[in-house]
Design a binder for these strands. Structure first.
Lengths: 207, 207
DNA sequence: GTCTATAAGATGATAGAC
DNA sequence: GTCTATCATCTTATAGAC
């Protein structure tokens, strides 16, 4: 990989994270990369193609970190602890903010929508795998399919990130409640046989 | 209200909804409003102030519609049915997309962040009220505080809207799973006295 | 209140020197 | 591969005629 090309990719991610989609331009990116503006077009053709490449790369790296971290998780409790930690870490790295910016920018551009879809797919694939393991013997498993839940979790992180930029206290409150909801799902999984049977029979009618 | 001013406000909302935050400019807005570009600055001073005014107005109208619709709802089942209908209607109107665009644009602009926060507050206030009523005698009430849950729901809608623009099928799948989760919460609220007691004692330790 | 004209700057993108 | 210089086009914002 050409060093200038690499610099442009990481600079694009930085601008997207810190200043938002609206701040993206060949000049802002090149300045942050410490290279000449014309090199954006030499290496990537257009600004949109650079953004596409940068976000796909970031999504790959991010998803790979998810996979490693999720590898040994088999209980809801462990997933929650890890989830909170991972959430803080990814937040600090700015990956969620970057994806949120990508998604909003993608609304007006079919080319970027493809990159955004790719990024979401990479995330949900990892989350779906761990959710499938964790929910395997929960009586709510028939209701909470891992695929749908993984997508809901990914979308939820996007929304929370946007919300956090606007009202940090409110976002924290929302996150705390969601964690409690997850704990409640776990508690339901630990219910005694009587309550468990009662719940399962009722749940069966929903699926 | 000056008719030109009104036209600019609704045109701003339209551009934000249909073309996204990146497409906002005095010219795109004025063209859609059918008025001269200079009038943006005469009536609102800057483009940012126009966007601020337009999104506050839209949030007010949207929240007022929520309030009316939520007024008579007292059960989770009724809220879910209404929620799905409302979600479709607001989606078609483009209000959620507009807020999502506002939130992402707000990341780079403190002035817009205030407007975004105002919009989120108006939404969560209505949702919190109806959630408080609906969850009043659910054994999970101690875990799912209405304030946090309302914020989570608002943020969730934002994320789902962004996701939908990128992958409609995935977003629908996520929404379906979330609805099932809400139904499960309702089922828990309808549990017999034995299971209910077992759940409540376990839940008590979490709060 | 609304218009035209215009200033002053940022943007994507290209041509051509090195 | 990298640079400078340049283009047409877009932007916010203002001045001044009507």
């Amino acid at each position: 990989m050409n060093p200038t090309k690499a610099k442009l990719l990481t600079a694009t991610a930085q601008v997207l994270r810190e200043d938002g989609f609206a701040a993206l331009s060949a000049r802002t990116i090149a300045t942050r990369a410490g290279v000449n503006q014309a090199l954006v077009f030499y290496h990537f053709g257009t600004v949109a193609e650079l953004v596409d490449a940068a976000t796909r790369q970031a999504a790959d790296e991010s998803a790979d970190r998810y996979r490693e971290a999720f590898a040994g998780v088999t209980s809801v409790g462990a997933l929650l602890a890890l989830g909170r930690e991972l959430h803080e870490r990814e937040r600090a790295a700015g990956n969620v903010a970057m994806m949120a910016q990508l998604m909003s920018g993608a609304q007006g551009s079919p080319e970027l929508a493809a990159a955004a879809r790719y990024a979401m797919d990479r995330w949900t694939r990892e989350i779906e795998a761990v959710l499938g393991r964790v929910l395997a013997d929960n009586p709510l498993a028939g209701v909470l399919d891992p695929a749908g839940l993984a997508r809901a979790v990914s979308a939820g992180f996007l929304g929370l990130e946007l919300y956090e930029g606007v009202d940090p206290a409110g976002a924290e409150q929302a996150l705390a409640t969601l964690e409690r909801l997850a704990v409640a799902v776990d508690v339901v999984g630990d219910l005694g046989p009587v309550a468990r049977r009662a719940l399962r029979s009722r749940v069966k009618n929903l699926a």
